[in-house]
Amino acid sequence: MELAAFSIISDPRNDKNQVYSLDSLLLIIFASVLSGYDSVDEMCEFARLKLDWFNKFVKLERAPCPETLRYLLCSIKPQSLIDVFDEFAKTQKYCSDGDCIAIDGKTMKGTATSSTEALHVISAWSSQYGITLAALESKGKKNEIKTIPEVIDLLDARKAVITTDAMGCQKAIASKIIESKNDYVLQIKGNQRRLFNEIKAFHHLQCREGFDNVSIETYEEIDKGHGRLEQRKYTHFALTDWVDNKAEWRGLKSVILVERKRTIGVSIQEQSSWYISSLQVNARKAAKAIRSHWQVENPLHWWLDVVYGDDHSTLHSANGPLNLTMIKRYCMNLLTKDSTIKRKKHRVMASAVDDTFREKLLFG
């Protein structure tokens, strides 16, 4: 990330009374969030404490007041930050071949007010690189169906496997993924009742007939730790034209049944999940895509909540909540650039206290 990258972000302020340059304010915001400080009060205090360090890159006689940063965060056009994501992917020479890209939504509960709903953002997460490739606001969870195709349009991905939860299991989304030259694994539930019922009936028929002339593979995983034993069996089988609804879904070739058994002490929990896919039968590859999807729930959403306090945003007006959560995602991307410190939480701590480490993350 170079200071020149800030040129992507246009200055929303009036020309009059600009005591601080746009570059200096943006550097304060990005460096502060990278170091775990996400409120405007904390950002201003961080700038005051690290004034000498900031002056290595920008002219900053004194730290700005909180209102200056609050106004900027609320006024920046979100499209500018979307473009910053695109620029980051280009500079990292991102290669999507063989990647699993999980698309999922997250609601920032703390952004809700008495007159507005909480902010809901759809993110595309690369399991191969551990970074957010794109993010867009969705007008509530129910509008994820409309926003997901727009997120796919932002991805410069080819030959990847794109996954969604059951909300994204839609004909238009499957078609959009195929048009983008990628494959899909989409969880299916009762929201696509006709296709779901046909698939289960087809599976029952094939089990009875021994999957005669139908390609099928199985793959099993076992995880043990913290007093818990989890077994997962993936059954990946091809669909035939026996399923009448198959032709209505572009690229649909196969189905994955995942049977999970979790043992904790004497307690045993069993659960089954179903997925439709454009992949040829390959149980190991299907398992990788399904397991990778939950990375968007664990590293990304957990990080946003626990480390960056995404559910407790202090910005509630204009573009502030959306811009801040986009910046947090971008800073998470920057944290992946250094692996000398194993835990990302410790990288945030190091960024807060080590000027050299922070400089390395921001400027390479």
Rank of each mutant, 00 (worst) to 15 (best):
K139I: 09
I145W: 11
D104M: 06
I101C: 00
F85S: 03
V151D: 04
G110F: 10
I76P: 06
T91W: 06
A118E: 04
C95S: 10
A124H: 10
S115I: 11
Y184E: 03
C65H: 11
T164W: 07
K59F: 13
L81V: 09
K146L: 15
S123C: 10
K142S: 14
T116R: 15
D153F: 01
L133N: 05
R70N: 15
V185C: 13
T113R: 07
A63E: 12
L133H: 09
I152C: 05
D99G: 08
I162Y: 09
F85D: 03
S138K: 13
D86M: 07
L136N: 07
K59I: 13
M108R: 04
R62W: 06
P149D: 03
S175H: 12
G110P: 11
K146W: 04
A160S: 15
L133F: 11
A47P: 07
T111L: 05
K93V: 01
T116L: 14
G140H: 13
T68A: 07
A89S: 14
G110H: 09
W53K: 02
K90D: 03
K176Y: 07
H120G: 05
G110A: 03
Y184C: 05
C169W: 05
N143A: 08
S138F: 13
S123A: 12
C100M: 06
H120M: 09
A124D: 10
N182W: 08
K146M: 14
V121N: 09
I173C: 12
K50G: 00
Y71Q: 06
A172I: 15
L73N: 01
F88N: 01
R62E: 10
S115R: 15
Y184G: 02
Y94G: 00
I177L: 01
L69G: 00
E67H: 08
C95K: 15
S75P: 12
I148P: 11
W125I: 00
G105P: 14
L136Q: 14
I178N: 08
D52V: 09
A47N: 07
T147M: 12
S75Q: 08
A47K: 04
Q187P: 10
L133P: 14
R62P: 05
W53P: 10
A174V: 06
A157K: 04
I188T: 03
S138L: 14
F54S: 01
L155P: 10
L49V: 11
I188R: 04
K106F: 06
T163E: 09
Q79S: 07
T164P: 13
Q170S: 00
N55Y: 06
A174Y: 04
C95H: 11
Y94L: 10
L154G: 02
K93H: 04
A157R: 05
G140R: 10
A89K: 15
D86S: 12
E117Q: 14
Q79P: 02
T116N: 15
L133W: 07
T111E: 04
K159L: 03
K159Q: 09
K59M: 08
L69H: 01
K171M: 14
I177R: 01
D97V: 12
K181N: 09
P64Q: 01
A47G: 02
T107M: 05
S114L: 14
K50A: 00
T111D: 01
G140A: 12
C100F: 11
R158C: 04
T68I: 09
I162D: 03
D83R: 10
E117W: 06
E137F: 11
L186T: 03
G168T: 03
S127G: 07
K90G: 00
S138V: 11
I173A: 02
F85V: 04
D86Q: 14
C74I: 00
P64F: 00
F54P: 10
F85M: 03
